[in-house]
Amino acid sequence: MIERTPVLNLVTHAVLFIGLAIAFVPMWLVFVAATLSLQEINTPPISLLPGSHLWENLAEAWTRADLGVKLTNSLIMSVAVAAGKIALASITAFALVFFRFPGRMTAFWLIFITLMLPLEVRIVPTYAVAANVFSPYQTILDVTGLSWLWQQLTGAELALEWNLLNSYTGLVLPLVATATGTFLYRQFFLTVPEELMEAAKMDGAGPMRFFREILMPLSITNMAALFTIMFIYAWNQYLWPLLITTDRTHRGTAVMALRQLIPMSGDSTGGGVPDWNVAMAGCLIVVAPALLVVALMQRFFVRGLIASDK
């Protein structure tokens, strides 16, 4: 469109530049802080240009918070959550969209209601389940009297137990058990032309073959989008890993490790002023993988966020 609005264009650029500054300046200052010595950083005013201590700060943060182990844990958790979501979401959505059988709508609502309540608001009882995944089933068996029956028949007490504390499974499963990706996949499957399935039927392919050879290859972009947002979602988890991992040295995640760089009131470090340069260096390391994934997969990230409507 041909439009001569020099003043407004100037304002537009100014506003967008402010936006850019809001997004970028905090990251820049964190980076600068990570390059200063402890003395430099505690001398106001805040420095705007980087110093020369970046590598030693990074190294210090790395050892102090044992980031090698933590980053590995985070990576394992995030990849597992993302992959698990894709597997679970695609087969569930496949059943919901391409099959008709009694009980399907009930299942649909049972699954989609879970979108209403995020993990955080039911965190305490979820933790209790993670302590023994079989506790729901044990309770059901106890209440219905089936375990009593079992004891009478076999003489052995029926005690199901599967503790997920401090395990990767425990980190991953509750994060996978929601409907976010299912919703995204369902939306995608609904856009697949019906004729494609009919053509597959005419070609003699059954449901699983159609799923594997037609739907899965078609949903590659969808998969990438879901993978990206779920990876970021899992990487940035804080509350759940904090609860499920009591063995913080071996099972802690990178984001949790920030705690070790920041004195917490009530912790053994006892509050007080942190070593900001090391803390910011740690912050950089923890955030870098997520930023990298988003930078590389930006298109998919945006697409995934919007399509899943959270």
Binding site: W235, Y238, L258
Partner: peptide, 11 residues
């Protein structure tokens, strides 16, 4: 303007 969303809330 999209990047900050990738930063973990605690970070």
């Amino acid at each position: 303007l999209i990047w900050p969303y990738a930063v973990a809330a605690p970070a």
